[in-house]
Design a protein around this nucleic acid. Sequence first.
DNA 1: CTGAAAGCGCTAACAG
DNA 2: CTGTTAGCGCTTTCAG
Lengths: 335, 335
Amino acid sequence: MNITEIAELAGVSKAAVSRYFNRGYLSAEKRQAIEKVVEETGYAPNVQAQTLRTRKNRQIGVVIPKLSSESVARVVDGISSVLTDCGYQLMLTNTANDPAKEVEYLELLRHHHVEGVIFSASIFTPDHDRILQNMHLPVVIVGQQYSGCSCVYHDDRGAAAAVTGLMLDRGCRRPGYIGVTQRDRAAGYERRQGFLAAAAAAGVAVREEDMAEGQFTMESGYEKAGELLGRENRPDGLFCATDNIAVGAMQYCREHGLRVPEAVMIAGIGDSPLGRVSAVTLTSAHLYYRTSGEEAARLMLSQLRRHGPISTRSLCLSYQVTERDSTRRNADFRD
Amino acid sequence: MNITEIAELAGVSKAAVSRYFNRGYLSAEKRQAIEKVVEETGYAPNVQAQTLRTRKNRQIGVVIPKLSSESVARVVDGISSVLTDCGYQLMLTNTANDPAKEVEYLELLRHHHVEGVIFSASIFTPDHDRILQNMHLPVVIVGQQYSGCSCVYHDDRGAAAAVTGLMLDRGCRRPGYIGVTQRDRAAGYERRQGFLAAAAAAGVAVREEDMAEGQFTMESGYEKAGELLGRENRPDGLFCATDNIAVGAMQYCREHGLRVPEAVMIAGIGDSPLGRVSAVTLTSAHLYYRTSGEEAARLMLSQLRRHGPISTRSLCLSYQVTERDSTRRNADFRD
DNA sequence: CTGAAAGCGCTAACAG
DNA sequence: CTGTTAGCGCTTTCAG
């Protein structure tokens, strides 16, 4: 079933049928005749042929590090809700945390002639810079700040500082830190800086030995908590760069008889459901992941609609601290 | 940059370049000449044009009800890992739990000439039957059993019966049930049947008033637990169709002074991380979601490779019960 | 307002 | 083994 057959059935030319689908000039009669045939046959234009001609395919490429992550899933959910409402489809590529694949998929999406790419980034390498310069199509980075592309990111430093500040207010004297690689600018570097800034602001000197870096997992949180807390002389609070890490650290405390928050306060970032149901509920900062996906999609749409050169715009989303039991120690309220 | 330019640069014909990319006959010299030009220019064939010609686009459509769900995310992760390894891309459509959109997207994917569709289904309507008959391309259903298509599903009834049986063994005398609509054959109907079968097998009569149906959420679990447990005369155990529901029910118990498992046992299905960290850890049956995604992808690949008519094959995955604290009552061990 | 005609970039006979 | 050629289904000038 193609446009020629439809044209014949409706007794018009191919061009008329094309115009019917592309809001071109068309007399009411022809419009009706075509409509009738289209409905009878269930015909819809071949998307590939359209793309070949117009170089627009109503597809947006999405590059993510993994799907089975609370935060990423929320981001993609936000993206997909906005984009599909506007008639775009998502071409999803999953890099499984392999930076080399990120570059590969970016390239691949370009060859697929997607109209734009939304990239949930973690770490930028020179390879990334190179290809991002040469995409020649709208790119929106989500979750990280990156000059040269539009991006939507979170106030990671502010959130980390606020949560750490809360711990300090609640009487934490010696805060420790469990984070991720600082090559991850947002979750690694910025949150660490926020932690340090809050400590400094409170006049607390953080010891090098009270800080650790691991992976984004509960297991890693458990392990690093062991390293930090398994000594005579240990921190009485742990700020963790993610809720997953924090929940892992709580497991360690639970299994080793360290009461939370009395012996060790714990707090995280992300406001994951995990922290809301955990044995001791977790103080955390909510980051607007779903919103970040939606905003990234909107930024993409506005770029798609614009004519002329690609202009970049950036958006920093706020956070919302929620205190729960893991920092509610009954002493030393400063405020 | 197109095949003609490459051909000119390499001093060969378009056909030779095409053969270069499609493993056709080609002399070593020409192959080298082309390789050189391709590397210099970074050329890659236009995917749309290839598709238009071959009617194969190396894209697989994926229809899911939502992404921000532990189980669905795991399924999609499994699908994407297998498919991208074989050079396929995913075109992801998110129906936001709207059955009408499922039909719409199935249709849309057909027009996009994807090579196959993997459909994470929940409820089948006559509309579904109609379009599924007329897809004319390989379809794999994941999560539900459906005759007429290949599918990968779980032993929902067996898992529910096993978990319920465990509760009974641990001394539960009056089991209650919180589930979801039975129109969802797998999570609604089958798990309910499993629950009833286990009760019947143990000679326990389940009262109608001890059974409730809600949504797939913690909130719903909380609410329905209130309805079932907020009476004088109440069940001393709740089997929940999903871990989310179970965790919600646990919240209710915690907030209303009902000790788990002493006053009320609770168990679920899915083995979600939530249940592993919750205040009282949750007994549950692990379902192999990620595996189901992988297997669905493999089934798809085998159909894509086959010539001739589409043959359907089905696969039922097993489960694994894990007992945790929510059913560990210190009394009445029967075994 | 309408139709004819020229491709978009590629593949696959077909004839060497 | 290789080049020529005829489209895949559609959009978009360009003349009417």
